[in-house]
Amino acid sequence: MAKRTRAKKSEQANLATRDEVAAMAKRIGLKLTRKQLDNLYLAVPYMAAMSARLRRPRPWEDDAAGIFTFPREVLK
């Protein structure tokens, strides 16, 4: 019984994520087929794991601007 409930919850979570993926694609103007959405959905766990890995407390010196330099035009 517990196993079936867990499976149902997991299915719902999957459905929610599928909806989210479809909504994200629509928001940025993509017209994806069902198959394309299915393919994209396959990538979700990998992408989510990467995003999660990047989130941790960081000192303020870890400033995204630190990897860029001024455009050359500005430095003239």
Partner: peptide
Amino acid sequence: FRFRILCGSLFSAVDYVQAQRARRALT
């Protein structure tokens, strides 16, 4: 190509900024 590039649509602006912050620390 489609499969790989569409993965970019799954990341938010916040993800991108966090990645750049992580990049600085790792560098």
